[in-house]
């Protein structure tokens, strides 16, 4: 049993800040504890801005070494305070928490990754992991949807991904008006249109991360393609305050999302009350 508080964070010094859009910056922190090396795709950490508060942020890179990358969107108190900080300042980090995407189960299988909006942050940890261990997996399809093509994150990384032969990438935006982005093919449409388009068959494992509304429609289309509920993996967002199964903020029905999740298979979610992300489909 650990003798120090599970709620205490280790210092993380901001090494670099890369603005991706006005409100989405990629932060790289040094990890003084070394604990974050254990991060797996889909897990999260609690980021603390002293004097302001904490919030859960997904691990954004496939491998965590001396540093960890987090993609943060400025939405409220903690994230705005972080956006005021500069390289060299320190924050608190603790984690990793939760069960991420079951990469061991995915081994040897065909994989489709579906990201909506900021959901691309945790999905990035997964594609980087898969590419790092490419020979362990079958086909790899990546679908990324957003409202406006301005919102596209990881533009340069996508340019490289689009050139690779071992991954098929589909990017869609509901609105693409505005300055041209010559090097990236962004199709007009939604995540659901890309699911229809992509050669996904019933034997695929599918990992999804996006807003609740996306899940409902995406899951419907994927099920139409014959993918069983046990192959559909959804990452749920709840207000995780402690991350360790104590504070109760992340309850879904009787389960702690922070411990049992955030990633669940649809087959599990179908049995839980309060899961607004799925339709609790009949037989």
């Amino acid at each position: 049993m650990s003798l120090s508080s599970p709620l205490i964070s280790a210092k993380g010094i901001i090494r670099t800040i890369v603005p991706m859009t006005n409100d989405n910056h990629l932060f790289e922190f040094s990890d003084s504890s070394g604990a974050l090396r254990a991060c797996k795709p889909g897990q999260f950490v609690e980021l603390w801005v002293p004097g302001v508060g904490e919030c859960p942020i997904s691990v954004c890179s496939g491998r965590v070494g001396d540093t960890i990358q987090l993609m943060v969107r400025k939405v409220g108190r903690v994230t705005s305070a972080l956006f005021q900080m500069s390289e060299g300042d320190w924050v608190g980090l603790r984690g990793p928490y939760g069960h991420g995407f079951p990469v061991d189960k995915y081994k040897g299988k065909n994989l489709c990754l579906v990201a909506g909006g900021l959901g691309v942050a945790p999905i990035r940890s997964l594609w980087q992991y898969v590419i790092d261990h490419r020979e362990d997996f079958g086909k790899l399809i990546l679908i990324y949807g957003m409202r406006h093509s301005f919102d596209l994150l990881f533009r340069q990384e996508f340019q490289l991904l689009l050139r690779r032969k071992d991954i098929e990438v589909y990017i869609a935006a509901e609105d693409t008006a505005g300055p041209e982005i010559p090097s990236l093919t962004v199709q007009l449409g939604r995540v659901t249109d890309m699911i229809d388009l992509a050669p996904i068959s019933a034997d695929f494992e599918v990992a999804l991360c996006g807003p609740p509304v996306m899940y409902k429609y995406a899951v419907e289309r994927l099920q139409k393609k014959g993918i069983p509920a046990s192959n559909l993996w959804l990452s749920l967002e709840r207000h995780m305050k402690c991350g360790i199964g104590k504070c109760g903020h992340c309850f879904v029905g009787g389960r702690f999302t922070c411990k049992s999740g955030p990633v669940f298979s649809l087959a599990e979610l179908n049995l839980l009350p309060e899961v607004i992300e799925c339709n609790h489909g009949g037989i």
Partner: peptide
């Protein structure tokens, strides 16, 4: 169930993190 809140000193140099029933 609890909430975790930060109480910062006026100069921002020090402070504490508190747990409160929620």
């Amino acid at each position: 169930c609890f909430d975790l809140v930060d109480i910062a000193s006026l100069n921002g140099e020090s402070g504490e993190r508190r747990r409160e029933w929620d």
